[in-house]
Computed example of a mutant assay.
Amino acid sequence: MEGTQEVKDGAGRESSAGDAISTVLLVFAMQAEAMPLVQTLNLTEDDEPSIFPKALPWKKYSGTHEGLTVHVVVPGKDLKLGVDSVGTVPVSMLTYASIVSLHPDLIINAGTAGGFRAKGAAIGDVFVATQFANHDRRIPVPVFDEYGIGTLAATPIPNLVKALELKEGKLSTGNSLDMTPQDEEIIKANDATIKDMEGAAVAYVANLLAVPLIAMKAVTDIVDGDKPTVEEFLGNMSRAAAALSATIPRVLEYVNAKSISNL
């Protein structure tokens, strides 16, 4: 967004790129990714009634940080199997419902990701996504193939990146933790530095509803390394979550009361 261009958000309100940021929505996929930040910011879980339908496992934690209203949402546990509801479908539903209910000025999709050593990623690095794309929506029909990849640019935040000395890279999203040869080919075509299981879905919803989005991903595993992905992912989850809980408060302090166009 440039200057004070008028847009409509998901609730149909007129908003402006020149408006000061006062409410931030943080979308996580996993409880273990979110809780260190929830504790760092001293956020509290919603009391009943929740803004979400009672039957859903979604959770919301809210509070203030340096005068900024902050909401953290996670899809919660699968009702049948009791594991985190990861993947694009749960997070896209959660993001839509949260935007409509909470009217955020800015969304931060935070979480973990695999990183590519060949692109400069290392365990514990926190990357800001510059672009979102999918690598597992293969539709080999003209135009539908581009729709499947679904490339979207992230909200430009050059001043924030420079001020906090953050790393940047393109993000590729798929619904599997592992990577097939076809996935690898498309990820390379997407020029991705990091890969996850949610980012492009959050970007799709944010783009539809014209809400600015930042994605911040901490690297848990090196995709092009020599260690098993699952072993690295589980072994480094706590380290990655700690990196996020250290970095995101600094981001919140920087964006507070600024306009999107000044980020």
Score class of each variant (00 low, 15 high):
Lys217Thr: 09
Ala241Gly: 04
Leu234Ala: 14
Lys227Gly: 08
Asp224Arg: 04
Ser245Cys: 00
Phe233Cys: 09
Asp226Tyr: 05
Val223Thr: 12
Leu213Asn: 06
Met237Arg: 12
Ser259Ile: 04
Val230Phe: 10
Leu234Val: 13
Ala215Thr: 14
Glu232Asp: 05
Leu244Cys: 05
Asp224Glu: 02
Asp226Glu: 08
Ala218Asp: 06
Ile248His: 14
Val255Ile: 04
Gly225Thr: 04
Lys217Val: 02
Pro249Gly: 06
Ala215Cys: 10
Asp226Pro: 01
Lys217Arg: 11
Pro249Leu: 11
Asp224Phe: 05
Asn256Gly: 00
Lys258Asn: 01
Val255Asp: 02
Leu208Gln: 12
Val230His: 11
Asp224Pro: 00
Pro228Asn: 02
Arg239Asp: 04
Asn256His: 11
Val230Met: 13
Lys227Glu: 14
Ile248Lys: 08
Val251Phe: 06
Thr220Gly: 12
Ser238His: 14
Leu252Val: 01
Phe233Pro: 09
Pro212Thr: 12
Ala240Lys: 05
Met237Glu: 13
Ala218Ser: 07
Lys227Asp: 14
Ser259Thr: 07
Arg239Lys: 10
Ser245Ala: 04
Ile214His: 08
Thr247Pro: 03
Pro212Arg: 09
Asp221Tyr: 03
Ala246Leu: 12
Lys258Ala: 01
Met237Asp: 06
Lys227Gln: 13
Val211Asn: 15
Pro212Leu: 12
Ala257Leu: 13
Ala218Arg: 08
Ala246Trp: 07
Ala218Tyr: 07
Pro249Glu: 08
Thr229Trp: 15
Leu252Arg: 09
Ala210Gly: 14
Asn256Ile: 00
Met216Leu: 15
Arg250Leu: 15
Ser259Leu: 07
Ile214Gln: 05
Met237Ser: 05
Ala215Gly: 07
Gly235Gln: 02
Ala242Ser: 02
Tyr254Met: 05
Glu231Arg: 09
Pro228Asp: 09
Ala215Lys: 11
Leu209His: 15
Asp226Lys: 07
Ser238Arg: 14
Glu231Gly: 00
Ile248Thr: 11
Ala241Lys: 05
Leu209Tyr: 15
Met237Cys: 01
Lys258Leu: 13
Tyr254Cys: 06
Thr247His: 02
Pro228Gln: 06
Ser238Met: 11
Gly225Phe: 09
Phe233Thr: 14
Thr247Cys: 14
Val223Lys: 09
Ala241His: 01
Ala257Tyr: 02
Val211Pro: 13
Ala257Met: 14
Ala243Arg: 03
